[in-house]
């Protein structure tokens, strides 16, 4: 295993042009086993991914497709069955990587008997932050997620959306370089969803790297720079959102100010460039269509899709 690490380190400098990889997985797979070691679920089939510094990377897939499993493997909450996951170049089992990571779990698994302030202060202490820094950071984050009015209330009195917000604040307490969000918008109202998306983009603009997973296509389409589509634990599609959604064979033309006669000769008119050309482009499909098509194809022909 150390041999592969060395190989990777040797390979890295030889491609200086490549963007810095914050997260790397190398044929990472996970099979859940029961107590007796019998195979239960192959939740993730060998996966190779890279998340680059400063991008928003989305893992997209229907429920049970292995998104959460992937994230847990990256964070060291699960141990890989094969392959390995590297974060900041460190193995996922190395706790010191956590200094620079913020993680918002699927549901906010927080201590219900603490209030918002105590919660953030507690997690701050886990980062060994001194008291003044914790105090400042706690107040900043409570303001940011808009919970100032409820900061002294125990979390067990919080609504789902409020818990989500405090969960997000908790994930940002250490001003992390890599933010891992598992279904960040579930449980949020439309305004909350909008705010969450804006925040994710803002974090990216501050130079942070975001890895999020979602089954909500709109979320992913709105914020992600690159996505990976997982289906039944298998990588189906990987690339930039804009290029994935581009339909190459079709050209879309939109025009204005053409006379009625000209309209009938539209092809000719366009060829001569006499109208005011508004756009000439390949149309995009929606992510929804792409997604449904992948699911359909996968069900017809199981196995990895030709990339």
């Amino acid at each position: 295993m150390s041999a592969t690490t060395e190989a990777a380190q040797a390979a890295a400098p030889s491609t200086p042009a490549a963007p810095e990889a914050i997260v790397q997985t190398r044929s990472l797979s996970k099979t859940y086993r029961d107590f007796w070691g019998r195979q239960k679920v192959r939740a993730l089939k060998p996966l190779d991914l890279e998340v680059h510094r400063g991008e928003i990377f989305g893992l997209l897939g229907p429920n049970g497709s292995g998104k959460t499993t992937t994230i847990k493997l990256l964070l060291g909450l699960l141990f890989p069955t094969t392959g390995k996951a590297l974060v900041f170049g460190k193995d996922s089992s190395d706790v010191s990587k956590n200094e620079r990571i913020g993680y918002l779990p699927e549901e906010s698994y927080l201590y219900r008997f603490l209030n918002a302030e105590e919660t953030l202060d507690f997690y701050g202490r886990l980062f060994d932050m001194p008291a003044e820094v914790r105090k400042r950071r706690t107040q900043e984050l409570i303001d940011m997620v808009g919970l100032n009015w409820a900061k002294r209330r125990q979390l067990k009195e919080y609504s789902k959306g409020m818990t989500r917000r405090i969960g997000l604040a908790q994930a940002l307490i250490n001003d992390p370089e890599l933010i891992v969000l598992d279904e960040p918008t579930t449980g949020l109202d439309p305004i909350g969803t909008r705010e969450m998306k804006d925040l994710i983009i803002k974090l990216r603009d501050e130079g942070k790297t975001v890895l999020m997973c979602s089954h909500l296509l709109a979320d992913v389409q709105d914020v992600c720079d690159r996505i990976a589509i997982l289906y039944q634990g298998e990588l189906k599609e990987l690339g930039r959102v804009d290029s994935l959604l581009k339909v190459d064979e079709v050209t879309e033309v939109r025009a204005r100010g053409l006379s009625e006669e000209a309209k009938s000769e539209i092809r000719e008119v366009i060829q001569r460039h006499q109208g005011e050309l508004l756009s000439l482009d390949n149309p995009s499909t929606t992510l929804e269509e792409l997604f449904l098509r992948i699911v359909r194809e996968s069900e017809e022909r199981p196995g990895a899709r030709p990339q």
Partner: peptide, 15 residues
Amino acid sequence: KSRTIYTIVTKPVRP
């Protein structure tokens, strides 16, 4: 069981 441990072990907490 309540999975609160997820938010602990993903911090730089040594076992």
